[in-house]
Design a protein around this nucleic acid. Structure first.
Lengths: 357, 357
DNA sequence: GTAGGATCGGGGAGCGCTCTCAACACCGCG
DNA sequence: CGCGGTGTTGAGAGCGCTCCCCGATCCTAC
């Protein structure tokens, strides 16, 4: 039977005693070991192993003010999130990158607006070295709170224009460009009555995709644009409305795959053949959805995992640089809290042609 | 422009000075405030507000040995996980419960076997008060490592029988009972040639569902049982094989909804009508999948979010009790590291009848 | 062989907090 | 009016670690 935490964990002191050196020497070895001669390093290493020594992070943070931990804030009030693998993929990317840098991932899920204050307080509390923030809605006050907390931050997706977002560093997909490409493809197919099911318009990604749609369909009949909400049910609803308003439409660009799948069901239900009667394009290339519909979905791919990885990389890089320049940089630390501000990144998208368009 | 972390955060000392009391008094107020007279409490509170004081968690942990943080370990080598909302839902449940207890969630995603050692080291490092572990595979050495780390742990799903699993506390669904109910339903429908697509048999949930199947189909034709892997593609593969082996089958119980959806596609492709020719039941009641197939899936529901919440609750309760009994309890601390070991919990499942069976 | 320089190791001072313990105040009761 | 008791407050000692600084050490070159 394990008596957990019964055995007091060995301290630096204990290791030092065992190896017959001073604490400082052990500390040096544990933290990289330069400046200590080989035989000693060896002896310390052995002592560490024998004792099963693991540094006490709390003690270390207390003096270094570093935590080797990054908060990931997912600000999603709706259950919706969990229906799509989006976050899981981002998390995976982030996790990989953080692990490679020996940083931990502290996950902050917010349920409602009240939670934002809690998150703000947590970040202000200096528990983490930085924050990665997702899924903002335009009216969120989170950026303001985060800004106030003064924690280096990278956003996933371009934040809105609210408080604290000016100069924020973010990683985003080329939503507008991707949308343009999708719609152009539909046009190239000879479709003339192209409709658009938007995402939830309180998110910049939805707005950008709508803009992309408009870039190509410059004077689109306003009846051909319906607001959705990124869910399959929303896609169904929107598709019904489109069909009612404008039965002669011959193509649909949905702002994500989930809505496209809903739209697809409605189209079939109403007896339209896809892609013969109506061509359909989604967005995301969410494999389990896009590949498994019938017909498989033509869609705009964004590399979600890579986005996560990149966010983490940007943050960590900024952090490193900051600690490197520590004393001098006070003045040049920008809004993001990152030195020499790594600028935002917009990743390209690619059109994946399957059967639906 | 925020100069992040430029202003040194106020310390207890500073608050004490401002309020004209001693550090100890401020500490008392900050930690609940009993034993301090009202006017003083008031004065300290004000000083805290004015200074924007936030306790330094590192310093606190250093002396209390508590971290108010729990690790969530997801041991999933395959990408598969991220295709289903399973973890997201569990995480949500866990997050809610932890938040209510002012605990943080440290997420540890493991990529491959090597990561297990890293995780073990992290847990042993005493960074967190406890751990919640998911998605074990039978041959995992993670339980052994965790056991060795001596961290109070609750497993999600019954762990296997390997090293360190004896006496482990877990939360699971009644996989076997749920499977039985599903199969009985098929039998009640008058189906006689009932097939089963199992999950990945290195996970206890898959094994248990198979056992439940066998409980009802006592002498099932072995050709009617095919091993799947919990993915839609695996479901397709398995369904093809079943159909080839045994074209006359009239019902299928798939060990999860994802595989059921794959099976459904194959059934349709081969011209079988569901449920007329072949009745189909899944497991999980994963809404985005189960409700959106055509026909919608009859399935066995398990309350995934509740499982997560329960795991967290069990862990936290054990932790509390442990710290309450601290000095005396050394001897009675069981395998799980939890005092007065809250025992494992198996949650009931319910059959959700939709159109597929 | 020894002086000089460069490098390495050890001692000690905290980081910010909690917690024990002693001092003190104030109450009621004898 | 004094004494014990109860209840508050303050002082101080660390928790385990890093990092600075100075003395010790080692090597090289003359």
């Amino acid at each position: 039977m394990t008596e957990s935490s019964t055995a007091p964990r060995p301290t630096l002191e204990a290791v030092a005693a065992r190896a017959g050196v001073s604490r400082a020497t052990v500390s040096r070895v544990v933290n990289g070991g330069d400046g200590v001669r080989e035989p000693l390093v060896e002896r310390v290493r052995r002592a560490v192993d024998e004792l099963g020594y693991v540094p006490n992070q709390a003690a270390r943070s207390l003096v270094t003010r570093r935590h080797d931990a990054v908060a990931v804030v997912i600000a999603e009030p709706e259950t919706r999130v969990f229906a799509d693998p989006f976050f899981a993929l981002q998390l995976r990317g982030i996790s990989k990158e953080l692990t490679a840098h020996d940083s931990q991932l502290v996950l902050l899920l917010t349920e409602g607006r009240d939670d934002h204050v809690r998150v703000g307080r947590y970040l202000a509390g200096g528990h983490v070295d930085g924050a990665l923030v997702f899924s903002l809605h335009l009216d969120d006050r989170l950026p303001g709170l985060i800004h106030g907390a003064g924690v280096p931050t990278v956003y996933g997706g371009r934040p809105g224009w609210g408080d604290g977002t000016r100069g924020a560093v973010y990683v985003d997909s080329d939503n507008r460009g991707g949308a343009r490409e999708a719609v152009r493809h539909l046009v190239a197919l000879g479709r003339t009555r192209v409709a658009h099911i938007t995402g939830a318009l309180d998110q910049t990604s939805a707005v950008d995709r709508l803009d992309g749609f408009r870039d190509v369909m410059v004077d689109a009949d306003p009846r051909l644009i319906v607001e959705g909400d990124f869910t399959p049910a929303g896609g169904e609803r929107a598709m019904r409305e489109l069909l009612d308003r404008c039965p002669e439409l011959d193509a649909v660009f949905a702002a994500n795959d989930l809505m496209a799948s809903g739209a697809l069901r409605v189209l079939r239900e109403r007896g339209r053949r896809v892609p013969e009667d109506v061509a359909l394009i989604g967005f995301d290339d969410m494999l389990p959805v896009a590949e498994q519909t019938d017909p498989p979905l033509t869609t705009v791919r964004q590399d979600i995992e890579e986005m996560g990885r990149l966010m983490a990389r940007l943050l960590l890089r900024g952090l490193d640089r900051r600690s490197a320049t520590e004393p001098a940089a006070a003045g040049s630390v920008a809004q993001s809290g990152l030195v020499g501000a790594p600028s935002s990144v917009v990743l390209p998208t690619t059109l994946v042609r399957r059967a639906s368009a």
